[in-house]
Design a protein around this nucleic acid. Structure first.
Length: 599
DNA sequence: GCCGTTTTCGGCCCGACTGTTTTCAGTCG
């Protein structure tokens, strides 16, 4: 059984092995690229294995890697990859994860000192043999030691909802410093990725040195990794506890994340933001495009290529564009891509890009819990929360009876709640439309937790999987299809049930779900809670292309959960979602017509 | 190993920082 994830990891591992064996870097890169391309797919690769045409149609996959994918799906292995693995000690690839240790150094340590794993590396540092290698001295060894320590205390990739407030705090801090004109975060955080590896902060300031000094002296800084004239890197303690959402840390290591600060000249702000926002793949494509137009692009600007060596800005050459990102993309004759689109997923060759959904477009929350099940809010508090957001509609969707641990409602309690909602509607009048609903469990076989009559009595039905989240892909597909095809269901809630950094969730054939959802006019939820973000970005993109309806809902359990909407919107934007295709953005009448079409 | 609005062969981004160097290699993003 080869899932896309396992195929991607096989190619990734093969690329690492080739690096350690010192093979051709372009060949290595080609394999790493296949891994990325496969990770982005929503088609089940197993279903097109053996079809070279379909495989090579995927950018980054050529004739040879297509054959390897087919071999992997059919036999469970790739002979060539096994041969690579046989040539490299099993513990060696893990050394590549140590910050500061790269393939060249690991390879030399292995070939010249026989170091095959982390333990041997530590021993070689202690007995001084590592420092004996050419171009490796005491300081380099100390750096590797620090890298090992950093690896041990790294919190892993931070969930978006943890990284965003932290970055905003750092930006606010830097903005208060004397002489700081601008400050912003860039990187994968600005692109709204669901998890963040490190934080990138950009600043324009009169006195760069003073900013770096203040930054490195920040009370949350655990250690300074590097500090230069334009860039400093630190390890910063997390101001919040990660609990189950972080990597399990060894011993008493305090979780920390790397934060990079760059102070840039005001006139190259746009170039720097473009450069440090990435993604790496997007920038690579963009710079290739620049070269083809006789230009060269770096973090200082876009320059005419004069054929000379060395950075153009340091030779006094004036940039063609640099002050704003818009200027740069315009000069390169590329339609301006919002940061969330910059993943090299077709945004650079698009003649036109969609007008992406914005936070302010949301007009309804269609997934809210109260104290009747596992919510912290009373019915009135939930409604007030929606009013404070400027919404026209709030749906009360407490859990159904099978979710006993969440205090799920049975039919009798559901009827009682309906009465309370009628009374609340009287009280609130036209300040808010309150929908009677349920987040009904999709049981393991795809049947729903309430009978049709009960479901028909509700204004809105969100059907979600909560249990049996590790069932086989085929069973999961059948299960979710059955829920989508149910005539009373409006929204498929958190379709895969994944929890970021904690649970993989279901791996159904998403394309089949999208086709069915389109046919039955069922909206697929982007659950906006940062621990879920389910559907994820690549799923949203495929659902949008399939013509599906999407819902962005906060799955409100407490008042603060409404604030997670921005993460759902970021995820939607990464999937090229427009307000038009998102049911939460529709005017009350249109939304109502859609809901009633299922009654 | 992939790819093509000059190319089916010959390319494949660019700079900062660090350490070990005396001009550069390795790592990172």
């Amino acid at each position: 059984m080869s899932t896309n994830a396992s195929i991607a990891s096989a190619f990734e591992h093969a690329a690492a092995l080739m690096e350690l064996l010192g093979e051709d870097k372009f060949r290595i890169n080609a394999h790493a690229r296949v891994a990325r391309a496969v990770n982005d797919l929503t088609t089940d690769l197993a279903s097109i294995a053996g079809d070279p045409k379909a495989l090579t149609a995927i950018e980054g996959i050529g004739a040879k890697t297509a054959a390897k994918i087919t071999e992997l799906v059919r036999t469970g292995k790739v002979e060539e990859f096994d041969e690579l693995a046989a040539r490299v000690p099993a513990g060696l690839p893990a050394l590549l994860n140590v910050p500061g240790l790269g393939p060249k150094t690991v390879r030399r340590a292995w070939q010249e000192l026989g170091i095959e794993d982390v333990a041997a590396l530590k021993a070689a540092m202690d007995d001084g043999s590592l420092a004996g290698l050419p171009r490796l001295g005491a300081k380099a060894v100390e750096k590797i030691r620090k890298g090992l320590d950093q690896l041990e205390r790294s919190a892993g990739r931070l969930p978006l909802g943890i990284a965003m407030p932290m970055a905003e705090g750092i930006v606010a801090f830097l903005s208060t410093l004397d002489g700081v004109e601008r400050a912003a975060f860039a990187g994968s955080l600005r692109r709204g990725k669901d998890t963040i590896g490190d934080l990138d902060i950009l600043v324009v300031a009169m006195d760069a040195a003073a900013v770096h000094e203040a930054f490195c002296a920040h009370e949350d800084v655990a250690s300074v990794i590097a500090r230069g004239e334009s860039k400093s890197s630190v390890l910063m303690k997390l101001s919040v506890s990660l609990g189950r959402w972080g990597r399990a840390l060894g011993s008493d290591a305090e979780p920390a994340v790397q934060v990079d600060l760059r102070v840039v000249p005001a006139e190259s702000w746009g170039a720097a933001m473009q450069y440090f926002t990435g993604s790496k793949e997007h920038n690579l494509k963009l710079r290739e495009r620049a070269v083809k137009q006789g230009l060269t692009l770096n973090e200082y600007g876009l320059f005419k290529d004069d054929g000379e060596n060395g950075p153009p800005q340091s030779r006094g050459i004036e940039p063609v564009a640099s002050e704003s990102e818009e200027d740069i993309y315009r000069a390169l004759k590329v339609v301006f891509p919002e940061p969330e689109l910059r993943e090299d997923r077709g945004e650079l060759s698009a003649k036109k890009l969609p007008e992406l959904i914005q936070l302010g477009d949301l007009k309804a929350e269609l997934h809210g819990h109260t104290t009747e099940s596992d919510g912290k809010l009373s019915l009135d508090e939930l409604v007030e929360g929606a009013i404070a957001r400027g919404f026209h509609t709030i749906a009360v969707t407490d859990h159904s009876k099978s979710s006993a641990q969440a205090g799920g409602l049975d039919e009798k309690r559901l009827r009682a709640q309906a009465k309370q909602i009628d009374e609340a509607q009287e009280r609130f009048g036209d300040r808010m439309r309150i929908l009677k609903g349920s987040e009904v469990d999709i049981l393991a076989d795809g049947s729903l937790d309430f009978d049709d009559d009960t479901l028909a009595s509700l204004d809105v039905v969100v059907a979600s999987p909560h249990t049996a989240l590790s069932q086989e892909p085929a069973a999961a597909t059948k299960r979710l299809l059955r829920a989508i095809e149910h005539p009373m269901v409006h929204i498929l809630g958190h379709p895969t049930g994944r929890l970021i950094n904690a649970r993989g969730g279901l791996e159904p054939a998403m394309d089949e779900l999208f086709a069915a959802a389109k046919e039955h006019s069922v909206a697929l939820e982007i659950n906006a809670h940062w621990m879920r973000l389910d559907l994820r970005d690549t799923h949203v993109r495929a659902a949008v292309e399939a013509g599906c309806l999407l819902a962005i809902d906060c799955d409100v359990h407490s008042l603060g959960d409404f604030d997670n909407a921005r993460y759902g919107v970021l995820t939607g934007r990464r999937g090229w979602l427009t307000a038009e295709q998102c049911v939460n953005c529709w005017p009350a009448d249109r939304q109502s017509d859609w809901l009633k079409s299922k009654r």
